[in-house]
C-alpha cells in the first residue's frame, strides 16, 4: 500500500485538535509505529501469541481455553452458517450470487472502503444488502443468523492474513481517521479510551481480567463467547467494552461503529485470521 500524507480535507473533517500529530501520519506509518510498540513490549510474541490475546497472560485461563478448543462450540455454528449460506432465498438466488468470489475466502478483507458510497462497508452490510436486494428482510446485526453466517464465511478465510485496505482516496482516509479518533477518544465517567486498556496496560489486569494487546484482537472475530453463550460479531464486543467504561455504546452498523471496525481491523493487518474463535 502506498504511503501518503493525510489530505487537508481529512483534517478539516476532524476539527482543529491534534493536527500536528495527524498531519504526519498515514495508515502505513501508523501501523509500523503500532507494531514496533508491541515488538518491544512483547519481544517473544509470535503471530499466534497476538491471536491468543489475554490467554498469553494467565496459564489457568489458557489451559481452560485449550480444553474448550478441543471441541470448540463454534464448530456447530459454522455448520449452521454453511447451511444458511447455501439455502436459496425465495427467488432461488443465494448469498453466493451477491458476493465476490461467491463469498468464499473474502472475510479477512473486510471492512472495505466502497468508492461508490464513499463509506466503509462491513461484511454484515454486504449480507443484509444481499438479502434486501433479493426481497428478504435484513438480519439483526448482533445476534442470531447474521453472526452465524459471518462465522461460516470467516471459516473460509481461516489462516489468511488480514488485508484491510485503505486506498488513496480522501474519503477512505477520513473514515480511517474517524475510526482512529474514536479509538483514541476518552469517553465515559472514568475518562477511558480503548487504548488505555490495550496498549500500555496490555498484559496487565483490570479486576479479574487480563488485558489483551490491541494488535491481534480482531483476528478472532466473529467469536463464540461463553459470556454470550453465542456467536457474535466484533461490533457486539465493542459495545460491551464501551459499556464497561461507562460510555454509551455507539449504534451497531452506524458509520462511526463501522469506521472503528475499519481502524481496529487494520491494526491486525498481516496476521492470520483465526476466526471464528472461542472467547470467555
Amino acid at each position: 500500500m502506498k504511503t501518503y500524507m493525510v489530505p487537508a480535507i481529512c483534517l478539516a473533517l476532524l476539527g482543529t485538535g491534534a493536527i500536528t500529530a495527524l498531519a504526519a501520519s498515514s495508515p502505513d506509518a501508523d501501523l509500523k509505529i503500532y507494531q514496533e510498540y508491541f515488538k518491544k513490549k512483547f519481544p517473544d510474541f509470535t503471530e499466534e501469541n497476538y491471536s491468543l490475546g489475554m490467554y498469553n497472560f494467565n496459564e489457568d485461563k489458557r489451559s481452560q481455553w485449550e480444553a474448550i478448543m478441543e471441541f470448540p462450540p463454534y464448530e456447530t455454528v459454522v455448520d449452521k452458517g454453511e447451511k444458511l449460506f447455501n439455502t436459496p432465498f425465495k427467488n432461488g438466488k443465494t448469498y453466493a450470487d451477491c458476493l465476490e468470489n461467491g463469498g468464499i475466502g473474502i472475510s479477512h478483507t473486510y471492512p472495505r472502503f466502497d468508492a461508490g458510497s464513499g463509506k466503509i462497508r462491513t461484511l454484515s452490510m454486504e449480507i443484509n444488502d444481499c438479502r434486501e436486494s433479493n426481497g428478504e428482510k435484513p438480519l439483526n446485526l448482533l445476534k442470531g443468523d447474521l453472526p452465524t453466517l459471518l462465522a461460516y464465511m470467516a471459516e473460509t478465510s481461516r489462516g489468511k492474513a488480514l488485508d484491510i485496505q485503505v486506498p488513496d482516496d480522501p474519503r477512505a482516509l477520513a473514515a480511517y481517521e474517524d475510526g482512529k479518533r474514536i479509538y483514541f477518544t476518552r469517553r465515559g465517567p472514568r475518562g477511558f479510551a480503548c487504548y488505555n486498556c490495550h496498549w500500555d496496560a496490555a498484559g496487565g489486569r483490570i479486576r479479574g481480567n487480563e488485558l489483551s494487546p490491541a494488535i491481534g484482537q480482531a483476528t478472532n472475530f466473529p467469536a463464540y463467547r461463553s459470556k454470550w453463550g453465542a456467536m457474535g460479531p466484533i461490533q457486539r464486543r465493542y459495545k460491551g467494552c464501551m459499556k464497561n467504561i461507562g460510555a454509551k455504546p455507539l449504534k451497531a452498523g452506524s458509520d462511526a461503529m463501522n469506521n472503528l471496525e475499519y481502524f481496529h481491523r487494520f491494526l491486525s493487518n498481516g496476521l492470520p485470521s483465526s476466526a471464528p474463535n472461542n472467547r470467555f
Partner: peptide, 25 residues
C-alpha cells in the same frame, strides 16, 4: 449535571484527542 460533564468531555476530546506520545511519530 452528569450530562453536562459528558458533553464538556466530548467537546474537549473532539478538539484534543490524540494517540499517546509513545504511539506518535
Amino acid at each position: 449535571k452528569e450530562a453536562e460533564l459528558a458533553h464538556a468531555q466530548a467537546e474537549y476530546e473532539l478538539k484534543n484527542w490524540a494517540p499517546p506520545p509513545y504511539l506518535m511519530p
